[in-house]
C-alpha cells in the first residue's frame, strides 16, 4: 500500500513529504513533524483536543487523513507564537486561569482563535457555540469563557 506525496504549509513553512495514507493529520503532525502541542483525546471527533485550523476553518485533525491536507494551509497551536511572544489568546488563558491540567488547552485555544478571526467581539452565546466541540474535564468552562472574553478585549 503505497505512500502518498503531499505538499502543504504548516505554521508558515512549506513541506513536501511522503505520508502513509492511513495516517491522520494529527498523527503526521505529531509523529512525523514532531509538533506535539496538539493532543489526541478521543480519536473520534468528540473532544476537540486535536483541533487545528486548516484553510481558515477549525477542524479536528484526528478526523482528517494526512493526504486530505494536500495543498492546504495548516495552523497548529505552535503557529500562534510570534517572535517568541505568546498570542493574546494564549496569554488570556494564563491570566484568567483557563488552564488546569492543560490537555484540552491547545484545542480550546485554536477554537478561540477561529472564533475571534470571524467574530472579534463574541457574545457569551457565540463563545459557547464556537467552543461547543471542545470538551474540558477540569475547569467547568467558566474560566475558559472568561479567557475568550479577555482575549477579545471585553469585560468579564
Amino acid at each position: 500500500m503505497g505512500k502518498v506525496n503531499i505538499s502543504f504549509t504548516i505554521n508558515g513553512s512549506s513541506h513536501q513529504i511522503d505520508v502513509e495514507p492511513q495516517w491522520t493529520l494529527l498523527e503526521m503532525v505529531r509523529e512525523q513533524l514532531h509538533l506535539t502541542g496538539t493532543k489526541e483525546g478521543c480519536g473520534t471527533g468528540d473532544c476537540g483536543a486535536c483541533s487545528m485550523i486548516v484553510d481558515g476553518r477549525l477542524i479536528t485533525s484526528c478526523c482528517m487523513l494526512a493526504p486530505q491536507a494536500d495543498g492546504s494551509d495548516v495552523t497548529t497551536v505552535e503557529g500562534l507564537l510570534a517572535n517568541g511572544d505568546l498570542h493574546p489568546v494564549q496569554q488570556a488563558f494564563i491570566e484568567t486561569g483557563g488552564v488546569q491540567c492543560g490537555f484540552c488547552t491547545p484545542g480550546m485555544i485554536m477554537a478561540t482563535k477561529a472564533l475571534l478571526d470571524r467574530t472579534p467581539k463574541p457574545t457569551l452565546d457565540d463563545i459557547r457555540e464556537g467552543l461547543a466541540g471542545n470538551l474540558c474535564r477540569c475547569t467547568g468552562y467558566t474560566k475558559i469563557y472568561e479567557a475568550v472574553m479577555t482575549a477579545s478585549g471585553q469585560e468579564i
Binding site: 476537540g48 483541533s51 476553518r57 477549525l58 479536528t60 478526523c63 477554537a111 457555540e129 466541540g133
Partner: peptide, 9 residues
Amino acid sequence: IAHPQIRNR
C-alpha cells in the same frame, strides 16, 4: 448538526 469542527468538514 454537531459542532463547528464537524460542520466545517
